[in-house]
Design a binder for these strands. Structure first.
Lengths: 353, 353
DNA sequence: CGGAGCTGAGTAACCAGTTTCTAACAGAGC
DNA sequence: GCTCTGTTAGAAACTGGTTACTCAGCTCCG
């Protein structure tokens, strides 16, 4: 049975009046309906697998769609359905492998539920992040903010516009916004205990971006530990979150006279390691270094990096679960705070006698 | 002048009949129009900065929009305008910093023209990439495929559906699809010349993903060089494109008896460097290693990596230019093939006597 | 043989915007 | 004072889909 170019149900002649200049050859549902000699409703039913269409009619519609290379407009579909089947993730720095693992976990979980992930990067810029967040949210059904740098007051003012919203490594106290985080306090305590155990008493902290709340967490704990242990001396050095900043800090680190370096994260630790190596400093002989996150290459540095591992993939996966619950009206799970696991590798050792 | 909750132009009562369950409190253009006592057309004009609205009316509309927290639906807007002001980028592996630089260049350039970038990752999977490409393209106004792993026949069959399309490190001969690429042949020749200059004659190539055309390019050139230089012996080792695969190849590299390693890219080189170090091999004393791409941390490895640098940011920026030309009907620029620049750092040295 | 029940497909309302056309009104010119 | 013209804003068509409602036609049963 061939295609009948039936006239019966032709939609009213398109006068192209209020229209927009647009590809006139583009296949739309109306064109397919005309070609198959059925109504738009029937085409829609066939395309969506409704069973209430006679097999022979359905075949004709499918043939027409095929012949015209028809693909339903996702835009129109989303508008009609009121959902895009898309969720967004915003991260401060895509270059940080930590966020990539989160991204993968989220993307995979979302994909398994038929949702696509859109990713945007704020480049550590809180202003840009706010704009991005609002816009990304408007184009999708839900939003995940990872390590948001948006200051608390703005975030608090914004969170209703962003819902359904899930936060990673961030929370808004007093609201119901689901939050998944890492216990940086515990991680830092483990690192400090490890270093103290090796006899280190003079530590230097390479601080991350000031807008990072997880940086604040680390700092608070370090100061508390320093205050609580007699003989423990802590120096703080403003650094950043990248190789470059870590590398650039090497000389300043040496100047502090510290015997161990607690870096904001693995990238900074790696940069510092490289910088110190260039200065002829042996690690861990002269100086111990720790990172944080356990990004993939941490175990391949020379020497392999002692760091605190966090469940990045799991953060992404559970972020999806919370978001999905929110979107489908179910109660989201309880907030979770993951405990980092100290991985002792070879950048830490006994303090030099 | 306050808000008049005028009734005059109220749109016909919404019977919620054909409708979808949806947030009934959501601010729409109709609601704003009602609140301001004007028509939807007027609200639209005000929101888009049309000057043909009386200032006092415009103010009333703005006040109403403000009061209702109105934000135009990007979906509806895109549908009506026939454009989304969004472009998509698909990469095989977001974890590769090389793609991040491309991403940044593209994102920045697109942003400067009021366009947003959506990113998706194919995980080196050609099947997934095809699906992603089609879907991403349908949600945006244009598409950039970076180092596409889609086999030539499929890509050729697909390229019209994907237009406007720009390819990075890939081309479809005989079509008008703009393509920006890196001259891997030249890069490899430079690397080989450098190694031969140091006296190396036995080289091993750590091959990248088989689906990567740039891997094929490298391989072709290496074989040609080997065939053309008497005494030049080449071994090929299947590897991959990540730290892990490079690391895992270390033992096999040693077994070849080669004096120099040409790695597919910097990540593989880094992994191999780490693996060799663990085996007690000194670089470049016993073995020289080269990478490719010059990703940010290449200069921070121990020792810093000799590699071929490519203009990643520029690839992204020019990809936008080509795409923008395509979208606005202008002639895209000529295809360009960028010449890598050899960066001699410290992982290469004279062959051991 | 007629009415109830079921099935299948069309009609039209709807999503939330933009834009063309048109009508009302005001001011200018004769 | 009347017509012509220019502005302004509303009505309605349009983007491309989905779906509630309706109705025609068939089957089945009393």
């Amino acid at each position: 049975m061939g295609l009948e170019m039936g006239d019966t149900h032709r939609s009213k002649p398109r006068s192209r009046r209020g229209g927009v200049r647009r590809d006139p050859a583009a296949a739309t549902i109306s064109r397919v309906a005309d070609a198959a000699g059925v109504s738009r409703a029937t085409v829609s039913r066939v395309m969506n697998g409704s069973t209430t269409v006679a097999p022979e009619l359905a075949a004709r519609v499918r043939a027409a769609a095929e012949a015209l290379n028809y693909e339903p407009s996702l835009l129109a579909r989303s508008l009609a359905l009121g959902r895009t089947s898309t969720v967004s993730l915003i991260v401060p720095d895509l270059a940080n492998p930590m966020f990539q693992d989160i991204l993968r976990g989220l993307s995979t979980a979302a994909g398994a539920h038929g949702h696509r992930l859109m990713v945007a990067e704020s480049n550590e810029n809180a202003e840009a992040e706010q704009i991005l967040a609002v816009e990304a949210r408007r184009r999708s059904d839900g939003l995940v903010l990872a390590s948001s740098r948006i200051p608390e007051p703005q975030l608090r003012a914004l969170h209703e516009r962003l819902a359904p919203l899930v936060l990673l490594n961030r929370e808004i106290p007093g609201t119901a916004v689901p939050s998944l985080s890492v216990d940086y306090h515990a991680g830092i305590r483990a690192i400090v205990a490890h270093l103290l155990g090796y006899g280190h008493r003079r530590l230097v902290y390479l601080a991350g971006p000031p807008a990072s709340t997880s940086n604040t967490d680390r700092l608070v704990t370090l100061r508390a530990e320093a205050a609580g242990s007699p003989g423990f001396h802590l120096t703080e050095l403003d650094c950043g979150s990248t190789f470059e900043t870590g590398h650039a800090a090497a000389r300043a680190v040496l100047a502090t006279g510290a015997t161990a370096v607690v870096a904001f994260n693995d990238m900074v630790a790696f940069g510092a390691l490289s910088g110190l190596h260039e200065l002829g400093v042996s690690v861990p002989g002269q100086l111990s270094i720790t990172g944080f996150d356990d990004i993939p290459f941490a175990r391949y540095t020379t020497p392999p990096l002692t760091t605190a591992s966090i469940p990045k993939n799991e953060l992404g996966r559970q972020a999806w679960e919370r978001l999905w619950a929110l979107m489908s009206g179910a109660p989201p799970g309880y907030d979770a705070r993951f405990q980092p696991r100290l991985l002792v590798r070879d950048t830490t050792g006994p303090v030099r006698a």
